[in-house]
Every structure is written in C-alpha cells, then in structure tokens.
Write a protein that binds this DNA or RNA. Structure first.
Lengths: 358, 358
DNA sequence: GAATGATGAGAAAGCGTTTTCTCAGAACGT
DNA sequence: ACGTTCTGAGAAAACGCTTTCTCATCATTC
C-alpha cells in the first residue's frame, strides 16, 4: 500500500488542526489540493489562475483534486498577495433615502457585472463621522464612491488624496483625477418653475431641503436665476427637509403662503405634502399644483400622479462604477479633466400640476 | 550625526518603492512605524492592539510615530492573521424592493454599531446564481444573511453547512444551528381578510406574488385557513407579481372578478392597483377596498392612505445582526433550537378600506 | 555527443498583520 | 554573590495566497 501518494492522508499532516487555533475542521486550503494532486502550492495556484505554463496532464490532475475537495481560493489571501480586494465602498448619508438606494443599486449591479462587490458605509447624516467612515471603508476596498457627502469643502479637499481612487456624486473637488457626477438640480428646478408659470401660476413656494445638502444649494442657485428672469413672480421660501414628514408638516405653511404652485425639495416631500393637502380637502391640482424632484418609481403611482424632474438615478450609480473601473484599470480618461459629468433632469409632467385658478 | 535613529530615513530602506510593484508611493506600513520608533514590528502591533505588556515609554514613542506617519493598520493583513474580516454579507433577491432595502438598512446600521460592515450581493431574482453568489460572499465575510432566498429547499439544505455562520430571513432549514427570522404572512393576510369581512365584504380577491417567493406561499396557506373558517366568502385568486406594474396591470382582472375587497400581495402592488383604479374612476374605498402588506413608509402617504399589515422590517434587519453576532461570538442561544423567531404583522387600518357597498 | 535553449515545476520570497517562542536583562531571594 | 523568577521586547512563524527565482529535464542543434 502506498504511503502518501494515494492522496487520502490530506488532513492528518495539517498543523492547523493540532495547533488548535480553531477547534473546527479547517477550511480546505491550497496546500490540501497540492498534497492531493502531488504537486506544489505554486502549481496549484498557477492552474487556478489559468497560467498556461503547466503541463495539461498535471493541470487536469490539479483541477480534479480541486473539484473533489471542493477547493475555493481564500479571497483574503488573494487580496493580500494581489493588493486588491475586488470590492468598492460606497458612503451614503442615509440609506433610507430612495435616491441613495437607487444609486446603490445601480452601482452594485454594474460592479457585479465586472466581478466587484460593494461595501456599504452609512453615515446616518452625521457629517463628523463621514471622514473616519470613508477612510475605514477605503482601506478595505479598491476604491470609494462618495455619495453627496455632507462634510465641508475644506475637509473633502483634505481627505481626497488619501481616498483615491474615488468617485464623487453630487459634489466636486479641485482634485483633477477625481471624477464627479452631478445632477443639474438648478436647471431642473428652473424648468419646474417655468412649467408652473406656463400654467398661469404667479405665486410659487419652494419647500427647501436639508441645509447641509449640496443639492439643495444647487436648487437655490437655480431659483435665484429663475427669479431674476421672472421678477413678476412671487416666490416664497419655506423650510422643509427631505422626508415625507417634512412635506406633511409644512401643509400649514404652504397654505398660509397663499402660493398656488409648490416646488417640493424632492418626491418624498411632495408626497407628504400631497397627503397633507388631501386631508385638508385642498384639491390638487385644482386648488394647488405640486411638483417633486427625482422621479422615484412611486411618483407614477401617487394620486394624482406627480409632476417632477426625472433624474436617471440608477444610471448615475452605473456611471459611478464605470468611472471607478477606469480609475482602477488606469484607463486614461479625458472626461475627468473636462470637469464633472452633468446629468440633466427631464421635466415629467403628470397630474399634480394644472392651470392656476381663474 | 546619527545614522538611522533619527527616523527620517523611513522611505529609503523600503523595498516596495524600488521593486516597482507599484509605481505609486507605498502606503505606510507597520514596518515604517517600527523603524521610526526604533522598535520591532511586533512591538508596534502590540501597542496598536492595546497589549499592556509594553513599557509605557516605548508605547508612547510608538503611538507618536504612528500618529505622525498617520499609520492605519491594513485590514487585509489583519484579516489574514486574525481569520476574520469584520464584514458580513447579505444576499437579497432584488435590491429595488423596499422590503429588502429596509432589511439591509436595519442590518447595516445594527452591524455598524458593533464595528461590522455589510457586503451586498444582489441575485437579481436569478435563483440559479444565488448559490454561487452566496458562496462567493461567504468566503469574503465572517457570516452571511440570506434574505428570502429563491433557491429550492434541497439546494438550501445542501448549501447551509458551507455557509455557516448564517442567518435566514423568511426561510427555514432543518439545520439546528441556523437562526431563522420569519414574518407570519399567513396570520397577517388572515387578519386583513377578516378585516374586510368585518366591513361586510363577501367577495374578495387575492393578487398573488411571485411563484418562487416563499412568503407568497405562506400567504396562500393563511388564505386556505381563512376559507375553511369562512366558507360563505368567495375568494378569487389572481396572478400578480411584486411590483407597481403588476398591481397596475391587474386592474382589469380585479374589476372583472366582481370582488369588492382586494388583498394585494404587498404595498407596492396595492399602490399600483390604487393608481389604476383611480384612472378608471373606481372609487376607493367606496366602490372597492384595497389592502397592502408590509407597511412601507409610503403606505401612510398614498391617497387614500393604505390599510395594510405592518411588518417591523427594519427591526428584522437588526435582529438578523443580533443573531449573527451571537453566532460569531459563539454565544449559545436556545432561541435557535426553539425554531424560527416569528414576527407577527400588525393590522394597520387606514383609508383604503371601508364598508362594502350596501 | 556535447553545448545551447526551451519548458515546466518546485523552492522561496513576498503581501501586512498577529502571536508564539525565545532570550536578554532586571529584580528578587537566599 | 549566585541562582531563580519576572518582565518586556525582538526573532520568527503563521495566516493563504501569488509570483519571482532557480534549477532540473528534455529537446534541439552543430
């Protein structure tokens, strides 16, 4: 009877079991396969990675041993050796926001296509934690997508170099090798306002979003432009937020403002407002017209359906991955030097806006 | 002039730079800190991990060097040495579904509390990919949460051992050390049906969900019970799905069924249906009553507001983490042996249900 | 038939940590 | 003053893999 060549004595030679670091049976490693196939670790590695400098006969033997033992290379070991993790991180301010969920989904699906996974870091709108969280995540991943970070400009600039490769969403850096994807909220809100004016509304109100939100700032800039172009229009600014509740709670303020055309910060706020107005018996769009922003899937199914500015959110996530992929693969991209990629929202007229009351 | 003790010659001795594996300046490693502090790697490691067998003076020197160089331990290296990644994976069938988003959020936030991160694996409802995806994810993580897996029972049983530690959501295994969190969809749908009966409805319809969905099966079981308890009630089964579109498209079938109380598979389907009925001029709840399931945040803000069965979805995610944590820490839990933890949905009566037409 | 060149596989050196092992040197007791 | 125990830090092994380096072996050529 042969002694070791039969390949059955795999486990007994392993130190792990006797060392007792882990009481449980150790996972199958490259050494086990090597032993079983009667070759060295190196050869097994070569076979597993499709290196063709291996004798076909031996390769077959290795593959047989691998499948028989159901061997799967340990990703951590590979990561350490290769210096990459095949994982990217995404930092979002709030995972409960449908916008960020959609971006996450687009990113995750696109990355999966290329064999990459996504690690989540939710800062829960705590901007002070963002930096640590981002650094933490970055070290575990090959790259980082920062989604509308709430941190200040200075901090972002300072952090940027240590987070490379990085892709920004709805934020920019002076750093020339950080791609940035922006939605033109300013343009979008102007189009919505114009739409209301076209319908005959002369008194508008804007339900603002969170103060720290950069996208809220862009909307304000857009509205300023709008007001200079339409000095005849009265525009009331109302404090709001980014949630259902914010919209719902601002019903009183909205009604009190006397405005007939309401620009909500986003679809969520608009839906909250819609619901509040309905409870009050205010008819939409007969009495008051309401617009949202983002065109989340729900916007098609509200009553009435919601006029909004459609943002290709999921595509934004996809694009983020494509930029990231180029960075990781060191594909030179002139798109980065040309500044941020800007996505134009598309006006989506539905049932929540109508002609102003006689 | 001292030669190396000044600690300034840190970079020059490093092989990485000259080796040229990476053109870019190498990341700061433990060796750099050791060199700068004039101690060995081992000591640096001890200090970084709060091992108190280090002379306070030396420890201080190491810490100073570490902060000065802005040293952060490489997580991959740690993972390899420690045999853990501080990461858990979650496999979901469809990230665009609000239910799974909520679970993800609950899981992610709870795990973050304990310093763990979450890796996403979206199977896109392709049940054949689920197994590979799960295995892949598991190897990168310390544990796996399988969220309503679509794979067959046999495959799940077979896979279970290799995925430990694992937590199941809305699925069970015979495997006694796999915690399972279940929502009692059967009970919930019965309560909704009872609610409609109490309102005087005698002709009901159920808009079914995806065939592969285990939770749909539970609803069907619940409805069977309901029918035996209420032989006088007529219940029509209609094919549906789990999306807005499914609900919206089934308007014709719903109206044709002649039912006045509609049990939609979930809130999304209910919202799609609501919207379709509104377009047709069918009044809710005057002409037809509609119920959803899950109580997603949007359910409070539909018009009319949606009667539904509230499931503590985010809490489900949290609980999933707590179970996982116990598994990872080897905390003996009798809860597992006692079978799945069952969450009872709570009937949430809102505006979409009303008395049956006289 | 010996020198040269391919070819292919093993040995060993990384990757960046943690942790065990080992051994100086200090503190202590007799 | 000498041996013993402790303390604390360095050397080295381990984690699981990839990849370079090295060297047999065999085919080729003059």
């Amino acid at each position: 009877m042969p002694v070791a060549e039969d390949g059955e004595g795999v486990g007994e030679a392993r130190k792990g079991a006797t060392l007792g670091r882990r009481a449980t049976t150790r996972r199958i490693g490259i050494a086990d396969v090597a032993l079983k196939a009667g070759v060295s670790h190196a050869t097994v590695s070569r076979v597993m990675n499709g290196n063709f400098t291996v004798d076909p006969a031996i390769a077959a033997r290795v593959r047989a041993a691998a499948t028989e033992l159901n061997y799967q290379p340990n990703p951590v070991g590979r990561s350490l050796a290769l210096g990459k993790t095949d994982t990217i991180g995404i930092v979002v301010p709030d995972l409960s926001n449908p916008t960020f969920q959609a971006i996450l989904r687009g990113l995750s699906m696109a990355a999966a296509q290329d064999g990459y996974r996504v690690l989540i870091a939710d800062s829960s709108e705590v901007s002070s934690e963002e930096a640590i969280l981002a650094g933490e995540a970055r070290r575990r991943c090959d790259g980082l997508v920062l989604c509308a970070p709430r941190m200040g400009d200075a901090e972002l600039e300072e952090l940027a170099p240590s987070l490379q490769p990085m892709v920004l969403i709805n934020r920019t850096t002076v750093d020339t090798h950080t791609p940035s994807l922006m939605v033109d909220y300013g343009q979008g809100i102007q189009e919505l306002a114009e739409h209301l004016v076209d319908l005959g509304h002369t008194r508008l109100a804007f339900l603002a979003g969170p103060a720290r939100s950069a996208s809220n700032g862009l909307r304000l800039v857009g509205l300023k432009k709008f007001m200079t172009a339409h000095p005849e229009i009265e525009l009331t600014m109302l404090d709001g937020g980014s949630t259902f509740e914010a919209g719902h709670q601002s019903v009183d303020a909205v009604v009190a403002s006397g405005a007939t055309g309401i620009l909500a910060f986003n679809d969520l706020v608009a839906m909250g407002l819609l619901s509040g107005l309905h409870e009050r018996g205010v008819r939409v769009p007969e009495d008051i017209s309401v617009t949202g922003f983002d065109d989340i899937p729900f916007a098609r199914y509200t009553t009435p359906t919601l006029t909004t500015a459609a943002v290709p959110i999921t595509e934004l996530g996809q694009q983020a991955w494509h930029r990231m992929r180029d960075l990781i693969r060191h594909v030179p991209s002139d798109a980065v030097a040309e500044g941020p990629t800007v996505f134009q929202p598309r006006l989506e007229v539905r049932g929540s806006t109508g002609a102003a009351k006689g």
